[in-house]
Simulated scan of single mutants.
Amino acid sequence: MMMEEPAFITIPYQEFKVIVQEVHSLRDQIAALESHQAADIERLALDMALDRQRITKLEKVEPQPLQRDRGAILRALIAANGGKMLAKDARQKMHLSKELFSMLLASMDKEIETKPLHSDRRNLVLIIK
């Protein structure tokens, strides 16, 4: 059976001082890097928040004049039908494609509510809020 030697290494004091200085220097460099990293993370978080604000502003689409006119027509059409109307019937009476009608409804989400018809969930009912 072989005995292990102690893991102690003796070095001259001058070399020890150099090693200690290098360790302190490395610690200082690590602290500086961590400080820079924290500042970078903070800056990136701020940039992301500003980007989100810009995207939100871009996503808010104001209705165009024609959309406003169509919105008024749709509100009048629903009002003439007692405040409720099937979306399919309203789209057909307005002679709009499904895409245009969908965009119109999306721009009027604060004025007109959509709910599935209770007897046939595939059909939507438009209700004036």
Rank of each mutant, 00 (worst) to 15 (best):
M2G: 13
M2Q: 13
M3T: 15
M3G: 15
M3I: 14
E5G: 07
E5S: 14
P6F: 04
P6A: 07
P6G: 02
P6N: 11
A7I: 02
F8Q: 08
I9K: 13
T10F: 06
I11N: 05
I11E: 07
Q14L: 06
E15M: 11
E15W: 09
K17H: 09
I19S: 03
I19E: 01
V20D: 11
Q21G: 03
V23Q: 08
V23W: 03
V23K: 13
V23G: 01
S25E: 08
L26Q: 01
R27H: 07
R27C: 00
R27M: 02
Q29S: 05
Q29W: 05
Q29G: 05
I30Y: 03
I30S: 00
I30R: 04
A31D: 01
A32Y: 04
E34R: 00
H36N: 08
Q37R: 02
A38C: 00
A39M: 02
A39F: 00
D40I: 00
I41Q: 00
L44D: 00
A45K: 11
L46Y: 00
L46K: 06
L46G: 02
D47Q: 13
M48I: 05
M48Q: 07
A49S: 08
L50N: 08
R52Y: 02
R52I: 03
R54D: 07
I55C: 04
T56M: 02
K57S: 06
L58K: 08
L58Q: 12
E59D: 06
P63Y: 08
P63D: 08
P65S: 10
L66T: 05
L66M: 13
Q67Y: 01
R70F: 12
R70Q: 15
G71K: 10
G71W: 11
G71D: 12
A72S: 14
A72V: 09
R75T: 10
R75L: 15
A76M: 13
A76R: 15
A76G: 08
A76S: 15
I78M: 10
I78P: 04
A79G: 02
G83W: 09
G83L: 10
G83A: 11
K84S: 07
K84M: 07
A87M: 02
A87F: 03
K88E: 15
D89K: 06
D89E: 11
D89G: 02
R91C: 12
R91A: 12
R91W: 12
Q92R: 09
K93W: 06
M94F: 04
H95D: 11
H95E: 12
H95T: 05
S97F: 08
K98T: 13
K98M: 05
E99L: 01
E99I: 11
E99T: 12
E99R: 05
E99V: 09
M103R: 09
L105P: 06
A106W: 05
A106N: 13
D109M: 07
D109G: 06
D109I: 12
D109A: 14
K110Q: 11
K110W: 02
E111I: 06
I112P: 10
E113V: 07
K115F: 07
K115R: 15
K115L: 13
L117K: 09
H118T: 12
H118M: 11
S119E: 14
D120A: 04
D120K: 13
R121C: 04
R121Y: 10
R121Q: 10
N123T: 01
N123V: 05
V125N: 03
I127E: 15
I128G: 11
K129D: 14
